[in-house]
Design a protein around this nucleic acid. Sequence first.
DNA 1: TCTGGGGTCCTAGGACCC
DNA 2: TCTGGGGTCCTAGGACCC
Length: 431
Amino acid sequence: MTGPIALVDCNNFYASCERVFRPKLHGVPLAVLSNNDGCVIARSQEVKALGIAMGTPMHHLPRAAFDHGLVLCSSNYELYGDMSARVMATLGEFTPRVEPYSIDESWLDLAGFDRPALSAHCQEMRRIVYKWTGIPVSVGVAPTRTLAKLANRHAKKHGAARDVFVIDDADSPDTLALLARTPVGEVWGIGGRVTSRLYEMGLHTALDLARADPKWIRRRFSVVVERTARELAGTRCINMNDAHDSKKLIMTSRSFGQMTADRREVAEAVRAHAARGAEKLRRQQSLACALRVTLRTNKYLPHLAQDHDSMTVALPSPTDNTFEIVRAAQRALQRLWKDRGIRYQKCGVQLMDLIEATGQQLDVFQPPQPAADRDKSERLMSALDQLNGQYGRGTVTVGVQRQNAPWQLRSNHRSNRWSTRWDELPTVRLQ
DNA sequence: TCTGGGGTCCTAGGACCC
DNA sequence: TCTGGGGTCCTAGGACCC
């Protein structure tokens, strides 16, 4: 990236997605729940105004919120993922370089725009994104990513009328004043731990951090904090990965719908996670060399026996084959399992040491797999992916996987997948 | 009854080697 | 008193983010 950097962030993204297809929900306090309907992970403006914090467990929601008409939605990632793709595609109309950063945020390279054009361009972008997708966004522009984050936050907080904020120059009096007003803990990359240590050293604002000696920061903290400090002062240090970069770790884990001490149930969940992980692996065309199965109990119930353990096993050779991966995961679980009647809350499968499928190093100690076998395995896997893609996840599974097993997620308030399922399309009634 | 899931990067420290 | 020292590789865990 060479020009000014823009961070485009969807406002209250999940809540906004829910509203696109259910306009009646505009103006209504709307909260989206985590998997398993556990806690609040997204809030509309009205919910924020009610003082409900991010992460509030559902059973801690105040009575009063419901009296104000609070509506709860289970998370509907199929809908959010599709809406996200639409927003990103629309942004692509405005600049050739869009780097999606998360489901609701994207970095844009705005090289070639000078100051007055820049603002107008961003305003227009906001307008079109809203018109085409129904999702409101905020835009922050600055010379570095850390400052663009700060500009975006400022746009959200103060720019209700505009929702665009531009930092031209890291050294301008306006910028310094903004930094001086920003508590250091609100800076992107500065979490709770670092914040309290910075406070002890007398650094309270973003400006204090920007003016600190980077070498001293590095000695007292780490290169990560040093980079953040330099970025606040206007030096670009953080470059994102390309959007196409493959992940280095693929993790699939879930809490159980209800806790379980039943080994067969846990094994069923582990198989499902392993199979899902293998699917993700194939989509990014990687092979895994190792795998880890983790098991954990519910730490919020300290009167119950606690256990948090994991087992890593190497795969005999790098693979993306569902059967091999499921088998290895079962083996890991077998070694992990303690026959003590412990009730588990959550399990997961991590695929690790990923390599590119095309650049596979042949194991010198293993005879190379005959081409015919490899072909067969590839064809089988792509048939599996096609069936599950077309008829829905879980159509073809390895071993027994019941559709509504008790370990599966609760999702009692899910809206329709309006934009990705034919049988859940919105209907239009003509008056 | 009930508290998310999926990531990245960095660092410290142990194992091992010469 | 004092137990070699330096390098690499790997793993676990911390910290942070969305």
